[in-house]
Computed example of a mutant assay.
Amino acid sequence: MDMKLESIVLPVADVDRTRAYFETLGWQVDLDHQADGFPIVQVTPPGSPCSVVFGTGLAAAPAGSIRGLLLSVADLEAARAELTARGVDVSEIFHDASGTASYAETYARAPGLDPERRSHASFATFSDPDGNVWQLREISTFG
């Protein structure tokens, strides 16, 4: 049975500020709705089948508490350059020096792209206005 992740709920403190931020990134606003006086917004990164939903009272986690939100890109250098041009403070590119392509924030970071340019092994990070941490991950092979 196919199962597709449709959306994630993101804990944020200010819905309008977060919507404006994601619009700055070029993400599509799919929904901006008021339900019983509470705003609900859904945005989708370009080319992604999964959306991000945020609003008042949607998330049990505190604003800014989410880590490791992975955004897969084919060209990490180009993705970093585009986000930087849009005013996002993106980390320098790094790779996992242990060679395991770990997703944990505590792995052995080494500067620059993975020397072998392995898929899933090069990263850059940025935070949204609430401090939720997003990770760009270069993927050259899927499957």
Rank of each mutant, 00 (worst) to 15 (best):
Q28K: 13
D30S: 06
D32H: 04
Q34M: 11
D36K: 03
G37R: 06
F38T: 11
P39A: 10
I40H: 06
I40S: 04
V41G: 05
T44S: 09
P46Y: 05
S48Q: 07
S48V: 04
P49D: 10
P49K: 14
C50S: 15
C50T: 15
C50M: 13
V52Q: 01
V53R: 06
G55A: 06
G55S: 08
T56A: 11
T56L: 09
G57R: 08
G57C: 07
A59C: 12
A59G: 11
A60W: 10
A61R: 15
A61T: 13
A61C: 11
P62I: 04
A63P: 08
S65M: 04
S65A: 14
S65K: 07
L69A: 10
L69W: 06
A78T: 14
A79G: 09
R80M: 02
E82Y: 03
R86V: 01
V88Q: 03
V88E: 00
D89A: 15
D89Q: 14
V90E: 04
V90F: 07
S91I: 02
F94H: 12
F94C: 08
H95K: 13
H95R: 12
H95G: 04
A97V: 01
S98A: 15
G99W: 02
G99T: 09
T100F: 11
T100E: 14
S102Q: 10
Y103F: 12
A104Q: 13
E105C: 08
E105Y: 10
T106P: 02
R109A: 10
R109N: 04
P111K: 03
L113F: 10
D114E: 03
E116C: 06
E116N: 11
R118L: 10
R118T: 06
R118C: 05
H120P: 00
A121W: 00
